[in-house]
Design a protein around this nucleic acid. Structure first.
Lengths: 199, 199
DNA sequence: CATTATCCGTAATTGCCGTTACGGTTTCTG
DNA sequence: CAGAAACCGTAACGGCAATTACGGATAATG
């Protein structure tokens, strides 16, 4: 099979996996259900992804890569560091509380082996946290913020931005916040951060 | 069966349910596995709890009730409102990131119906949030804090206190914080809160 | 155009789950 | 102490999961 059609087929399969996962949860997302939804054979799924864990690993990897790209674009968008953070905050919140990320977090919570959670942490959080740290350090260099430990500040910012929205989403206690809500939370988090770490 | 032995037996069964849940996850926590662990019959489990959902509902209810009692004791411990908050914060964090609460949140994330998540929200968060709101309003009445919207302040405080520790715990990306870590986070959250809402 | 690898659809295998059912035994009750 | 109720252990039932296997169709390759 040509590489391009194969990639397109994989995108279809992974899209079907998300659809089933969002509808039925991790336990209901059987390989056969995903195969049926993608009009693919389960043999193909096993050949390409090894097993169920492998398929969900692929979902995590792709989702994390897309998030990284999006954040990089926001950072490259110009302006000073705090302006970038103002754009980035709502976008990050929207992704983390969106259907796909929530479905993956639920899958990780349901995975008895804990491998999915490790993957989410490794390829998601632990690669985007440094990006935010860099922005904060830029802001300090530009004289917009003043602090000693960038790790603390980043944690405070993320706590203010995300709060308990993500966990409430994961346990099914909340709908996804719309764009306005994300913007409002991003704005508030940044405003509080400025007050806490004013130069 | 006498009520006291029955209650003791229920405590044993629910303890066994936690043990299996923590070891095997929600999908691995079958009724038979729990019955075996508790040296009970599955017929008893079904007679007492109805079905699997009913058993986990009972776990949520009991856990939430214990948390409420603990918080009430902390509040009743005397001192001004901020002193109570200083005691309460680390204790709350310890419970929310402890093995039992984490196991229940994982179960809620894995539950396709979403009922468990609803129960956790209803009997857990939505009954303890007002307690914290009361403390904050007391602090304002005592002149220790100044703010308009208590809901906002409470959300900021909880965000600072808990951050993403809970979600990271639930997806298996973190060990439970020890007492020192909980105390440190509680202290920091309170210090930041005071700076943000100084009179 | 023929061959060859790949993919689809379906079925088979194995195993465990939730739930119900049923003797045998323990424990309460009067 | 006798009868009744509740509990234990085990088994049975239907269902669905993950994974493997296989013939027929399809598309890439030389």
């Amino acid at each position: 099979m040509r590489d391009e059609t194969r990639e397109a087929r994989q995108a279809q399969i992974e899209s079907a996996a998300y659809a089933v996962l969002e509808e039925k949860g991790y336990s209901g997302a059987s390989m056969l259900a995903i195969a049926r939804r993608a009009k693919a054979s389960n043999e193909t799924l096993y050949n390409w992804y090894g097993d169920k864990t492998g398929l969900f690993h692929a979902l995590v990897r792709r989702n994390a890569a897309e998030l990284r790209e999006m954040l990089a674009a926001q950072i490259a968008g110009g302006g000073d560091a705090l302006a970038a953070l103002e754009r980035l905050g709502p976008a990050l919140l929207a992704v983390l509380t969106g259907e796909r990320a929530v479905a993956l977090n639920r899958a990780a919570a349901a995975d008895p082996t804990g491998e999915l959670g490790q993957a989410i942490g490794r390829e998601g959080r632990e690669t985007i946290a440094p990006l935010i740290g860099q922005l904060l350090e830029q802001a300090r260099a530009q004289g917009a913020l003043a602090f000693d430990e960038v790790d603390d500040v980043r944690e405070v910012y993320l706590g203010l931005l995300i709060g308990d929205v993500q966990i409430r989403r994961v346990i099914g206690r909340m709908e996804a916040p719309d764009a306005a809500a994300c913007a409002a939370r991003g704005k508030r988090a940044l405003a509080l951060l400025k007050r806490l770490y004013a130069p």
